[in-house]
């Protein structure tokens, strides 16, 4: 792999807008956002409610389409892809961690984690089993493989979601407020786990949060406000900027 390819961004967003139509009213969620994320980065997207964090993650995750501008993931312009190709891209390139875990309630922990591998149809049964067990071990849930999601605590469920997001070894993991529904200790554990996987596996993580403590673990903090890109800061700069903003209020 040459240096130029290695440096090419995994996510490239250029002048992206996204409007939602509510009845006769058009509500702009993103207004000309530019962003580049490189492989191996651990990026936090910060901003108050309604700033466009989730919308941005949805566009990067190919679960929604931009009104205008270019969203490129793993070198592919998502606007040029068919629904089938977008689904394929999500399955093979992107992992998702949702705020409210979004596990399949009728499947066991093992089956939930195994599910994306079944959709991929790349590995045989033994290889799948090995991969899932290894991940469950990593997230500390090896003993809970046969449990159903409703038999687990919130933190445990989110760890299952992390394992499910990582099981396909995606290049990019998107996490929308992964700690919002967890207590601070459990939230910290989840972020530590994500960070560990980022460092060990080199997986790119983009997660949204408005918790300064969580933000402090990121390589960079991208701040949004009113659907606009504000700045890209280091965690300490972001903390100061947020503190100043709070004092200003």
């Amino acid at each position: 792999m040459n240096a130029a390819v290695a440096q090419s961004p995994i996510v490239s967003i250029t002048n992206v807008t996204k409007d939602y139509t509510l009845g006769k009213v058009v509500v702009p969620a993103l207004r000309g956002v530019d962003l580049q994320v490189h492989p191996g980065e651990f990026i936090s997207i910060a901003g108050p409610s309604g700033s466009g964090k989730t919308t941005l993650l949805n566009l990067i995750g190919c679960v929604d389409t931009a009104t205008s501008g270019v969203v490129s993931v793993a070198g592919q312009d998502t606007k040029q892809l068919t629904e089938r190709q977008l689904t394929h891209l999500r399955l093979h390139t992107i992992g998702f961690i949702f705020q409210s875990f979004n596990l399949v309630s009728v499947l066991s922990v093992f089956q939930n984690v195994e599910f994306p591998l079944l959709l991929q149809r790349k590995l045989d049964k033994n290889q799948r089993k090995e991969r899932v067990n290894q991940l469950l071990e990593q997230v500390g849930l090896a003993d809970h493989a046969k449990h159903r999601p409703n038999e687990l605590s919130g933190g445990q469920r989110q760890r299952v979601a992390v394992a499910r997001a990582l099981v396909t070894r995606p290049q990019l993991v998107l996490a929308d407020e992964p700690t919002a529904n967890l207590d601070s200790v459990t939230g910290q554990n989840i972020i530590d786990l994500m960070k560990e996987l980022n460092q060990k596996e080199g997986t790119t993580f983009i997660f949204s949060t408005h918790d300064a403590k969580v933000m402090s673990h990121a390589n960079a903090v991208v701040r949004l406000a009113d659907g606009k890109f504000l700045d890209r800061l280091t965690p300490s700069e972001a903390k100061r900027a947020m503190a100043a903003g709070a004092e200003g209020h």
């Binding site: 689904t87 999500r90 093979h92 998702f96 399949v104 994306p116 959709l119 499910r164």
Partner: peptide, 9 residues
């Protein structure tokens, strides 16, 4: 969720 994680229609 299933569609997001890559399940085809």
């Amino acid at each position: 969720t299933l569609r997001a994680i890559g399940m085809q229609r």
